[in-house]
């Protein structure tokens, strides 16, 4: 399609590049500002001298975070919820998606429509809360894992993936060779599912890592809190353990460090997901493609 562009098209393309560049800068700037602030001196942050790059470079904010035990406890808890939760999510989703992708499964369509119905009509906050309570998992780690063990939307995406990747002839051929359904699933379907497992893992992991509302209603023990609850207390409710800031002398210095600390925890808590997603970026479009075929 690399034919000579008309003059009008050249102008259009130039404007298009310029506009996209502006969008790029607009999205990037707040992120850069946070990062630069976290690396600047408390005085520079408080007096508003940070605009783009770090001013009076220092790692003081990160040093305080390093000693903040509550933060690392939350960080470790979030690691656990994300790791175990995502593993369970992927296992449950892949197994069900394969079974429901089989055209010859009796009542398959019926079961799937019940699943979809639960996304269109939900019982709501209080009934779901009482079920978690009745199951005896309130205020335990499982309350952060079981209530979101499956996303029906991701199930639909994975089902479409299997429908496309596994032609019926493949199944027929395996069945002629005497393969049972489970053999076919483990020996043929599963080894071909790496791309969809990547997409599912990313989506589920982001959901777990960023989850805070479930912790808010299901957890009471501080020792179980994920990092997001910690972040809420520090960033939104402005609660910083002042014992960490003492020994700094003036109130002003404490206030500066308090601001610096906020920027530093934002950076550390957001880093895991922001580091992982670029590696899985190519799978995201494929996943979206499956989603759009479904709809």
């Amino acid at each position: 399609m690399n034919i000579l562009e008309s003059k009008q098209d050249k102008w259009f393309l130039a404007a298009n590049y310029a506009a996209l560049f502006l969008i790029l800068v607009n999205v990037l700037y707040p992120l850069l500002y946070i990062l630069s602030s976290s690396l600047s001196s408390p005085q520079a942050v408080v007096s508003g001298r940070v605009w783009v790059w770090p001013v009076e470079f220092t790692l003081d904010g990160y040093k305080v975070v390093m000693e903040y035990e509550k933060f690392w406890l939350g960080f470790a808890n979030s690691m656990f919820y994300t790791g175990v939760g995502t593993f369970l999510n992927v296992v449950v989703t892949i197994m069900a998606a394969y079974a429901l992708s089989r055209k010859d499964l009796p009542f398959g369509v019926f079961i799937l429509s019940i699943f979809v119905f639960t996304t269109l009509f939900q019982a709501g906050l209080i009934p779901e809360f009482l079920v978690v309570d009745a199951l005896g998992i309130m205020n335990t780690r499982w309350a952060m894992i079981f209530p979101t063990a499956l996303s029906v939307f991701q199930l639909l995406v994975a089902r479409t993936f299997f429908e496309i990747t596994l032609p019926e002839e493949l199944l027929k051929a395996a069945q002629v060779d005497g393969a049972s359904d489970l053999t076919f699933f483990f020996k043929i379907a599963l080894p071909l599912s790496a791309p969809i497992i990547a997409v599912l893992s990313l989506f589920y992991a982001v959901g777990h890592w960023n989850q805070y509302f479930m912790a808010l209603i299901y957890l009471r023990d501080e020792s179980l809190f994920p990092v997001q609850i910690f972040l809420r207390n520090v960033l939104v409710q402005n609660e910083v353990d002042s014992s960490l800031l003492t020994g700094l002398g003036s109130v002003e210095a404490q206030n500066g460090l308090r601001q610096l600390l906020k920027y530093s925890v934002i950076v550390i808590a957001s880093a895991p997901m922001l580091i992982v997603y670029p590696f899985l970026q190519k799978y995201l479009v494929k996943g979206a493609l499956l989603g759009s075929i479904k709809s």
Partner: peptide, 20 residues
């Protein structure tokens, strides 16, 4: 293969409707 997903939906999505 369907059992874990069905258990989840029954327990956490359908059973709460009883509470309605």
């Amino acid at each position: 293969l369907l059992l874990p997903a069905a258990t989840y939906v029954a327990l956490f999505k359908i059973y709460p409707m009883y509470g309605l």
